[in-house]
Protein backbone atom coordinates (compact mmCIF):
# COMPACT_ATOMS: atom_id res chain seq x y z
CA UNK A 1 0.00 0.00 0.00
CA UNK A 2 1.20 3.52 -0.85
CA UNK A 3 2.25 5.28 2.38
CA UNK A 4 0.25 8.36 3.41
CA UNK A 5 3.37 10.49 3.56
CA UNK A 6 6.60 9.90 1.76
CA UNK A 7 9.87 11.84 1.66
CA UNK A 8 12.44 10.85 -0.95
CA UNK A 9 16.01 12.05 -0.50
CA UNK A 10 14.85 15.48 0.65
CA UNK A 11 17.30 18.37 0.92
CA UNK A 12 16.57 21.67 2.62
CA UNK A 13 18.57 24.88 2.70
CA UNK A 14 17.96 27.59 5.26
CA UNK A 15 19.77 30.70 4.06
CA UNK A 16 23.16 29.44 2.98
CA UNK A 17 23.05 26.42 5.30
CA UNK A 18 22.44 22.99 3.88
CA UNK A 19 20.38 21.57 6.77
CA UNK A 20 18.70 18.46 5.39
CA UNK A 21 21.03 16.47 3.17
CA UNK A 22 19.00 13.44 2.29
CA UNK A 23 16.03 12.61 4.46
CA UNK A 24 13.87 9.73 3.35
CA UNK A 25 10.91 8.65 5.35
CA UNK A 26 7.48 7.05 5.16
CA UNK A 27 4.39 7.20 7.32
CA UNK A 28 1.71 4.59 6.83
CA UNK A 29 -1.93 5.37 7.44
CA UNK A 30 -3.05 4.55 10.96
CA UNK A 31 0.42 4.27 12.39
CA UNK A 32 2.62 6.40 14.62
CA UNK A 33 6.00 7.06 13.04
CA UNK A 34 8.68 8.46 15.31
CA UNK A 35 11.59 10.63 14.20
CA UNK A 36 14.61 10.05 16.41
CA UNK A 37 17.98 11.74 16.53
CA UNK A 38 20.14 13.87 18.75
CA UNK A 39 19.82 17.63 19.24
CA UNK A 40 20.35 19.50 16.02
CA UNK A 41 19.97 16.37 13.88
CA UNK A 42 17.26 17.96 11.73
CA UNK A 43 14.04 16.53 13.14
CA UNK A 44 12.22 19.85 13.44
CA UNK A 45 13.45 20.93 10.02
CA UNK A 46 12.09 17.69 8.59
CA UNK A 47 8.60 18.51 9.89
CA UNK A 48 8.86 22.11 8.67
CA UNK A 49 9.92 20.89 5.27
CA UNK A 50 6.91 18.60 5.01
CA UNK A 51 4.74 21.67 5.66
CA UNK A 52 6.66 23.94 3.31
CA UNK A 53 7.66 26.30 6.12
CA UNK A 54 11.27 25.62 5.16
CA UNK A 55 10.68 24.38 1.61
CA UNK A 56 12.73 21.52 0.22
CA UNK A 57 15.47 22.46 -2.20
CA UNK A 58 15.73 18.96 -3.58
CA UNK A 59 14.02 15.60 -3.44
CA UNK A 60 10.32 14.98 -3.18
CA UNK A 61 7.60 15.09 -0.54
CA UNK A 62 4.33 13.42 -1.38
CA UNK A 63 1.19 13.25 0.68
CA UNK A 64 -1.73 10.99 -0.11
CA UNK A 65 -0.15 10.24 -3.48
CA UNK A 66 0.24 13.91 -4.54
CA UNK A 67 3.51 15.76 -4.84
CA UNK A 68 3.42 18.64 -2.33
CA UNK A 69 7.12 19.58 -2.53
CA UNK A 70 6.51 22.93 -4.20
CA UNK A 71 3.16 23.77 -2.65
CA UNK A 72 2.73 26.65 -0.22
CA UNK A 73 2.22 25.99 3.48
CA UNK A 74 -1.48 26.82 3.68
CA UNK A 75 -2.26 24.55 0.74
CA UNK A 76 -0.28 21.68 2.26
CA UNK A 77 -2.06 22.20 5.57
CA UNK A 78 -5.44 22.23 3.84
CA UNK A 79 -4.71 19.00 2.06
CA UNK A 80 -4.91 17.47 5.54
CA UNK A 81 -1.76 17.95 7.61
CA UNK A 82 -1.93 19.34 11.14
CA UNK A 83 1.11 20.73 12.94
CA UNK A 84 2.04 20.94 16.62
CA UNK A 85 5.32 22.85 16.71
CA UNK A 86 8.10 22.40 19.23
CA UNK A 87 7.19 25.68 20.97
CA UNK A 88 3.48 24.86 20.61
CA UNK A 89 2.76 28.05 18.67
CA UNK A 90 -0.09 29.15 20.92
CA UNK A 91 -1.55 32.58 20.09
CA UNK A 92 -0.94 33.85 23.58
CA UNK A 93 -3.22 36.89 23.60
CA UNK A 94 -6.11 34.97 22.04
CA UNK A 95 -8.42 32.88 24.18
CA UNK A 96 -8.51 29.10 24.00
CA UNK A 97 -11.72 29.40 22.00
CA UNK A 98 -10.13 31.84 19.55
CA UNK A 99 -7.06 29.63 19.20
CA UNK A 100 -9.35 26.79 18.18
CA UNK A 101 -11.36 28.99 15.82
CA UNK A 102 -8.30 30.00 13.82
CA UNK A 103 -7.98 26.32 12.93
CA UNK A 104 -11.67 26.05 12.07
CA UNK A 105 -12.14 28.88 9.59
CA UNK A 106 -13.82 26.48 7.22
CA UNK A 107 -16.24 25.10 9.76
CA UNK A 108 -18.04 21.96 8.61
CA UNK A 109 -20.03 19.16 10.12
CA UNK A 110 -16.80 17.22 10.39
CA UNK A 111 -14.79 19.90 12.19
CA UNK A 112 -17.63 20.32 14.67
CA UNK A 113 -17.64 16.59 15.33
CA UNK A 114 -13.87 16.66 15.76
CA UNK A 115 -14.21 19.55 18.18
CA UNK A 116 -16.54 17.48 20.33
CA UNK A 117 -14.11 14.58 20.27
CA UNK A 118 -11.19 16.75 21.21
CA UNK A 119 -13.03 18.50 24.04
CA UNK A 120 -13.88 15.12 25.46
CA UNK A 121 -10.24 14.17 25.21
CA UNK A 122 -9.02 17.41 26.82
CA UNK A 123 -11.72 18.52 29.25
CA UNK A 124 -9.33 21.16 30.63
CA UNK A 125 -9.78 23.14 27.45
CA UNK A 126 -13.48 23.48 28.11
CA UNK A 127 -12.75 24.74 31.61
CA UNK A 128 -10.40 27.40 30.26
CA UNK A 129 -12.37 28.13 27.10
CA UNK A 130 -12.41 31.91 27.67
CA UNK A 131 -8.93 32.16 29.12
CA UNK A 132 -5.95 33.58 27.21
CA UNK A 133 -3.74 30.93 25.67
CA UNK A 134 -0.71 32.62 27.21
CA UNK A 135 -2.05 32.00 30.71
CA UNK A 136 -2.28 28.23 30.38
CA UNK A 137 0.19 25.88 32.03
CA UNK A 138 2.78 24.11 29.90
CA UNK A 139 0.75 20.92 29.78
CA UNK A 140 -2.45 22.75 28.92
CA UNK A 141 -0.68 24.60 26.11
CA UNK A 142 0.45 21.28 24.72
CA UNK A 143 -3.12 19.96 24.85
CA UNK A 144 -4.41 23.10 23.15
CA UNK A 145 -1.80 22.85 20.41
CA UNK A 146 -2.70 19.22 19.77
CA UNK A 147 -6.43 19.90 19.85
CA UNK A 148 -6.02 22.80 17.44
CA UNK A 149 -4.04 20.70 14.97
CA UNK A 150 -6.55 17.88 15.27
CA UNK A 151 -9.78 19.80 14.54
CA UNK A 152 -8.48 21.18 11.25
CA UNK A 153 -9.61 18.09 9.40
CA UNK A 154 -6.20 16.45 9.57
CA UNK A 155 -5.39 13.09 8.08
CA UNK A 156 -1.86 13.44 9.41
CA UNK A 157 -0.57 15.12 12.55
CA UNK A 158 3.03 16.28 12.87
CA UNK A 159 3.89 16.60 16.56
CA UNK A 160 7.27 17.98 17.60
CA UNK A 161 8.59 16.88 21.02
CA UNK A 162 5.33 17.00 22.96
CA UNK A 163 7.02 15.91 26.18
CA UNK A 164 9.57 18.71 26.19
CA UNK A 165 9.71 20.59 29.48
CA UNK A 166 6.74 18.82 31.05
CA UNK A 167 6.53 16.97 34.37
CA UNK A 168 6.38 13.15 34.11
CA UNK A 169 2.77 12.97 35.20
CA UNK A 170 1.77 15.47 32.50
CA UNK A 171 3.84 13.64 29.90
CA UNK A 172 1.83 10.55 30.75
CA UNK A 173 -1.40 12.41 29.98
CA UNK A 174 -0.04 13.79 26.74
CA UNK A 175 1.02 10.32 25.64
CA UNK A 176 -2.40 8.92 26.47
CA UNK A 177 -3.96 11.65 24.38
CA UNK A 178 -1.71 10.82 21.45
CA UNK A 179 -2.70 7.17 21.74
CA UNK A 180 -6.30 8.29 21.67
CA UNK A 181 -5.82 10.54 18.63
CA UNK A 182 -4.14 7.65 16.87
CA UNK A 183 -7.59 6.08 16.60
CA UNK A 184 -8.61 8.90 14.29
CA UNK A 185 -5.51 9.95 12.42
CA UNK A 186 -1.97 9.10 11.36
CA UNK A 187 0.81 10.63 13.45
CA UNK A 188 4.42 11.58 12.89
CA UNK A 189 6.09 12.28 16.19
CA UNK A 190 9.43 13.73 17.14
CA UNK A 191 10.32 12.37 20.56
CA UNK A 192 13.67 12.41 22.37
CA UNK A 193 12.39 10.36 25.27
CA UNK A 194 13.11 6.86 24.00
CA UNK A 195 10.89 5.15 26.56
CA UNK A 196 7.92 7.14 25.32
CA UNK A 197 8.88 6.79 21.70
CA UNK A 198 9.15 3.04 21.88
CA UNK A 199 5.87 2.77 23.72
CA UNK A 200 3.70 4.58 21.22
CA UNK A 201 5.67 4.36 17.99
CA UNK A 202 5.01 1.71 15.36
CA UNK A 203 7.97 2.69 13.21
CA UNK A 204 11.09 4.76 13.70
CA UNK A 205 13.33 6.81 11.47
CA UNK A 206 16.73 7.74 12.76
CA UNK A 207 18.08 11.06 11.54
CA UNK A 208 21.66 12.23 12.05
CA UNK A 209 23.36 15.30 10.58
CA UNK A 210 20.40 15.95 8.33
CA UNK A 211 20.31 12.45 6.86
CA UNK A 212 18.20 9.37 7.40
CA UNK A 213 20.57 6.72 8.74
CA UNK A 214 18.14 3.94 9.52
CA UNK A 215 14.46 3.20 9.70
CA UNK A 216 12.29 0.24 10.51
CA UNK A 217 9.81 -1.22 12.97
CA UNK A 218 10.09 0.18 16.47
CA UNK A 219 10.29 -3.30 17.98
CA UNK A 220 13.52 -3.96 16.08
CA UNK A 221 15.16 -0.78 17.34
CA UNK A 222 14.41 -1.60 20.96
CA UNK A 223 16.73 -4.60 20.71
CA UNK A 224 19.48 -2.86 18.74
CA UNK A 225 21.75 -1.50 21.46
CA UNK A 226 24.51 -0.51 19.08
CA UNK A 227 22.26 1.77 17.02
CA UNK A 228 20.81 3.34 20.11
CA UNK A 229 24.24 3.96 21.59
CA UNK A 230 25.66 5.38 18.40
CA UNK A 231 22.89 7.79 17.49
CA UNK A 232 20.87 8.38 20.62
CA UNK A 233 23.53 8.01 23.30
CA UNK A 234 21.53 5.43 25.23
CA UNK A 235 21.48 1.71 25.84
Amino acid sequence: MEPLLRMDDVHTHIGQYHILQGVSFEARAGEVGVLLGRNGAGKTTTLKTILGLTPASGGRVSFGGTDVTKKRTHAISRSGIGYVPEDQGIFSTLTVEENMKVAMTRETEETRKKLDTVLELFPDLKTFWKKDGGHLSGGQKQMLAMARAFVGNSKLLLIDEPSKGLAPIIIEKVMEAIQEMKQHTTIVLVEQNFMMASRIGDTYTLIDDGRTVQSGRMADLAGNDELKRKYLGIG
Partner: peptide, 8 residues
Protein backbone atom coordinates in the same frame (compact mmCIF):
# COMPACT_ATOMS: atom_id res chain seq x y z
CA UNK B 1 4.07 30.74 10.59
CA UNK B 2 1.40 29.15 12.73
CA UNK B 3 -1.55 30.68 10.87
CA UNK B 4 -0.12 29.34 7.62
CA UNK B 5 0.31 25.93 9.19
CA UNK B 6 -3.39 26.13 10.11
CA UNK B 7 -4.34 26.52 6.47
CA UNK B 8 -4.54 30.28 6.03
Amino acid sequence: EMVQALGI
